[in-house]
Nucleic acid binder design. Structure first.
Lengths: 212, 212
DNA sequence: TGACAATATGACCATGTGGTCGTATAATAT
DNA sequence: ATATTATACGACCACATGGTCATATTGTCA
């Protein structure tokens, strides 16, 4: 956690530091990201930085926690609303919300993308602590419930499906990023919806040609 | 490409350098990987290293090209054999071969894993040049051909399916990594086959409960 | 043995890193 | 105006990086 000094800072200065850090960590990964660069970008002296934060890891954890918190907030509404939706509708909602989040907070989305690549064990474990595997738990829960309701074939392997859904999720995000590159989401909403629906159709009905 | 001097080296010395480099690049990513460490591991002086290689990128490209070449060789046989297999069988073969390769050359598999996370643009583009997107092209080709044969419902979106297949692929890799962590593949072949079949079953039949 | 080329070596360079610390400045309270 | 505290600052440290180069060692012909 940052020092008290940091929170006493005037709003604009503090948020400049934060956005500089987000910028750096979303481009570079923990080890490669540079404190010097962050200082330059936010026009503060090195000494000042270390009056705000204990060390590099302190900053990293703070930034990541912020981003995660915001994403959780963003999703929580959608999730509570989704109880009376079918499984496919629920999952579709998660896709769309994911894309929406990336549109609204591209920096945070990039931060998450970078984190998924992170090699530094200490940085990883400091961020996780136990907040991880939340999404896996969420998927499993959705699957079980859909099986109970008879929506999903009960013979389907829950773990395999859950892993598939996670991989699909990150693939879609990556695909959107490559295709529309952080801008122009709004010009392609129809496009995105169609693509997501194509995926879900396959997932739901399978690829087998039934006319044979 | 390495200098002639490098290829004049005695076999064991040369292969020690190579394996040290593979080791380093499979753990650290281009920027973080250290030439100093590679020199230490292979007991050569810094100056000697720069008599063998032009610079860090030269070594990196050489190592990656080696690994890719070996993987391509490994797959090429399987792919030519697979012409009279059904789509699902073809795809299953690719999975199993992928796992086999990772079992046979865990270092190279780790190298590929690391490369997929690579941030350094110059390192990435130097390795790719155009060999990229091969797997996507392969999938699309397989899909088209299976549609033509009537194996796959022709209404299925080829691009979406290709993305799903890639997601499946990464799911399998992730599953293996989490479950067996780079070692002990051989003790769990049954396990892996079951997991792969679970995924393929979902892909083929969909998750919808048909008894409704 | 001597001469010439191939190779091996590690001190050295400029640059960048995360982090420290003495000091200067600003703000506050008396 | 004075004393006290909070903050800002950047030179500095030890260390690691990729890369260079003059010198030493080895191998190979004659």
């Amino acid at each position: 956690m940052p020092q008290e000094t940091f929170f006493n800072l005037p709003e604009d200065k503090r948020s400049l530091i934060i956005s500089s850090a987000v910028d750096e960590f979303s481009k570079a990964g923990y080890n490669t990201a540079s404190i010097n660069q962050i200082c330059k970008k936010s026009n503060i002296a090195k000494g000042s930085f270390y009056q705000y934060f204990k060390d590099k890891l302190d900053l990293y954890v703070y930034i990541m926690t912020m981003a995660i918190q915001e994403k959780v907030n963003f999703f929580s509404t959608a999730i509570t609303e989704s109880h009376d939706l079918t499984f496919i509708e629920q999952f579709r909602l998660l896709f769309i919300k994911g894309v929406e989040f990336a549109k609204k907070r591209p920096q945070y989305a990039a931060l998450g993308e970078q984190f998924s690549k992170e090699n530094d064990e200490s940085a990883k474990s400091a961020v996780i602590k136990e907040g991880d595997k939340q999404s896996e738990a969420l998927f499993i829960q959705m699957i079980q419930s859909a099986k109970a309701k008879g929506e999903i074939d009960s013979r389907v392997d829950s773990l395999a499906l859950s892993m598939l859904l996670q991989a699909l999720n990150s693939s879609v995000n990556k695909y959107m990023l490559n295709k529309f590159g952080n801008v122009g989401y709004e010009y392609n909403e129809g496009n995105i919806n169609n693509f997501v629906d194509s995926l879900l159709h396959i997932l739901y009905n399978g690829i087998r040609n039934k006319s044979n």
